[in-house]
């Protein structure tokens, strides 16, 4: 039951997008998001749509996984659309009761909806094709210059990857503990707020104990294998840009150019 919640919902597949360097994907996602806000034009969004569709196609991840993330922001999306529609001043289109829908409002709402939707789908493409570990690896390497400013990049990245690694484990454990307590007649669903809070005790105590035990085991295991921070540590699979990454950066440039051109030429 609880396992159905996926955080860092990596979808294993064998595709070009999966094989790209995580840094490339991080930069690509940022470029995509910036482009959505930079070029406010339907023609440019058409270009974005085509490119996004192409990337999704190439990633071999079923489309339904891409839109899964949208469910969680559906309400936010609707509120944004409604507010923009009614509250943007401009040429009135029609009136419902005291509320006026303006032409500008409709346009604004449409832009916002497209932006939000694409933003979510765009970042889903990244998280679905990159394992959390690759992502932190990518960030660590990408942010390495900050080391000069005495930012502990490696340590932060290590903490992040450990935290990410523990999420599914803890979820699974929560599931097991819930079952073990339900077998003893515990009830996690019914009852008032106080009752519910009380019923969490038999779940949280074993969970915390197991989390602490795991953490201390892990710390011990890391020390036993000589871990002492990032200094002098080499990687088993060092990140290295391949030809396909260079191609991807080229594609990003072309994409930005196309967006710019689309907006300039059509002016719509």
């Amino acid at each position: 039951m609880i396992r159905d919640i996926t955080i860092g919902q990596y979808y294993p597949a064998d595709s070009v997008i999966h094989r790209l360097d995580p840094r490339t994907k991080l930069v690509g996602t940022l470029v995509f998001i910036f482009s959505l806000f930079l070029f406010r034009s339907f023609a440019a969004y058409a270009v974005a749509t085509i490119c996004l569709a192409g990337v999704i196609r190439a990633s071999k991840v079923p489309f339904k996984f891409m839109v899964k993330g949208l469910k969680s922001i559906l309400i936010l999306l609707m509120i944004t659309v409604v507010f923009n529609m009614f509250l943007t001043p401009g040429e009135p289109l029609f009136k419902i009761w005291k509320l006026t829908i303006t032409q500008e409002g409709v346009l604004q709402a449409a832009f916002m909806a497209i932006r939000l939707t694409y933003l979510i789908i765009g970042s889903s493409v990244m998280t679905l094709t990159t394992t959390p570990n690759q992502l932190t690896d990518g960030m660590e390497k990408g942010l390495r210059p900050l080391n000069k400013l005495h930012v502990p990049v490696h340590e932060v990245a290590m903490m992040m990857s450990i935290a990410l690694r523990f999420i599914p484990i803890l979820l699974e454990e929560t599931d097991k503990i819930m079952k073990a307590q339900m077998a003893r007649g515990a009830d996690f669903e019914n009852g008032g707020l106080l009752q519910k809070a009380k019923s969490m005790v038999p779940l949280l105590v074993p969970l915390f104990i197991s989390a602490f035990r795991r953490a201390s085991d892990l710390a011990m295991a890391m020390e036993a294998r000589g871990y002492h921070g990032g200094g002098g540590r080499t990687k088993m699979k060092p990140l290295k840009y391949q030809k396909r990454d260079h191609m991807a950066y080229l594609a990003m440039m072309l994409y930005l150019l196309a967006m710019y051109a689309a907006k300039r030429i059509t002016g719509f």
Partner: peptide, 13 residues
């Protein structure tokens, strides 16, 4: 139907 789980750690609290 009483079920005792594989790991006692999961139920003692």
């Amino acid at each position: 139907v009483g079920l005792v789980f594989q790991y006692p750690e999961y139920q003692l609290f």
